[in-house]
């Protein structure tokens, strides 16, 4: 029985990471998420920017209106010009490193495929995106199947390594998977009114969560997102490591997590005897920022999943971290929320 459940989790992750959805083009991934959660929701709506907002439960005595945000967009590319020979020049949507582009395959929203090539550059210099192009197999501008403004994502199948899971757009589909699984664990006895937001346009500046949070008007909020790790050879000097448990964010460069929310998360992890680690990130930003900045301000934090190789087509997370994050999130949502003193 337990074995079967694990398979379900893998299948969910595989489906989510393999569905394309660069920022602004989230319709396919939104539809996929919607199918997954339909049976568990009390109310589902899509707002003006395309955020999928899912309510579970309603507020009971002692409960709070909670927003959980996992962004469903991913980084990608947009065509800026088709040159005379049919090569498509492009611009990144979100933070795409030129180092991860060359030779990669891309998938357009209509199913068209392409590969990324590059002009010759000075040996020893860094490539830049404006020296690169997408080759769709076209022989001239005329028969090029894509046009200016068309959007593609990277194409890479999901890879199950056992302990570790690898895919493009683990950022932030792994969080969508965690939110969906936690949603399934929400009990009828929870006093809280929970809004699971599958937000859009995070990668281009935390835009979707901004408007979603305004609409939800939460009393407390948690973003779920990936974070950088410091456990690779001569990598970032970061405290978080794969496999050490869910990371509880204290800050990143976009916001200072509310200390009350941080402590609430620590207390829940301790209560469930889950492994956890504290996260201080000196770069990056998440939907937590948007929730915090809603209306008069909202206590907000972020549950992070350590990930290697973020914003490459091979983002790696630890399976136990994912499972523990589901448990932590479900626990946070199922109980009366005690935010300490301000």
């Amino acid at each position: 029985m337990a074995e079967k459940k694990k398979d379900n989790l893998l299948e969910l992750i595989k489906r989510l990471v393999e569905t394309p959805g660069p920022s602004g083009q989230e319709h396919q991934i939104r539809a996929a998420v919607r199918e997954e959660i339909e049976g568990y929701a009390d109310e589902i709506r899509t707002d003006a920017l395309g955020n999928l907002i899912v309510r579970v439960g309603s507020k009971k005595a002692g409960g709070m209106r909670v927003m959980v945000s996992a962004h469903i967009d991913e980084i990608g590319l947009m065509v800026t010009h088709i040159d005379e020979k049919g090569f498509a020049r492009f611009l990144s949507i979100g933070g795409v490193s030129p180092l991860t582009c060359l030779g990669n395959r891309v998938l357009f929203m209509d199913g068209t495929r392409g590969v990324i090539g590059m002009e010759s550059i000075e040996p020893g210099t860094m490539p830049t995106l404006d020296k690169m192009y997408i080759d769709t197999g076209a022989t001239s501008a005329k028969d090029c199947p894509v046009q200016v403004g068309d959007v593609c994502g990277f194409e890479r199948p999901f890879l199950d390594m056992g302990k570790r899971l690898v895919a493009k757009s683990m950022d932030d589909r792994i969080a969508a998977a965690i939110a969906i699984e936690a949603m399934k664990l929400v009990k009828k006895t929870s006093p809280n009114e929970i809004y699971f937001v599958f937000s859009v346009q995070e990668e281009v500046g935390i835009r979707g969560a901004t408007t979603a949070a305004y609409g939800v008007n939460p009393e407390v909020g948690i973003a779920v997102d990936v974070t950088g790790v410091g456990d690779t050879p001569k990598g970032f000097k970061l405290n978080v490591e794969l496999g050490n448990g869910p990371a509880i964010k204290v800050r990143d460069s976009s916001f200072i997590a509310d200390p009350r929310v941080v402590q609430w998360m620590v207390n829940e992890a301790k209560a469930q005897k889950l492994p956890y680690q504290m996260e201080v990130l000196t770069f990056g930003g998440t939907d937590g920022r948007a929730i915090q900045m809603t209306r008069e301000g909202v206590p907000a934090g972020c549950l992070s999943i350590g990930s290697r190789y973020i914003h490459t087509p091979s983002e790696m997370v630890d399976r136990a971290d994912v499972e523990n994050s589901i448990k932590l999130l479900a626990g946070l949502l199922n109980n009366k929320i005690e935010l300490g003193e301000l």
Binding site: G230, K237, L238, N239, V250, R251, I256, V280, T282
Partner: peptide, 16 residues
Amino acid sequence: LMVTAIEDGFLRFTQV
């Protein structure tokens, strides 16, 4: 400042 890591009893930090 804010503590980012603890190494051999010393604290690494970032700024606020």
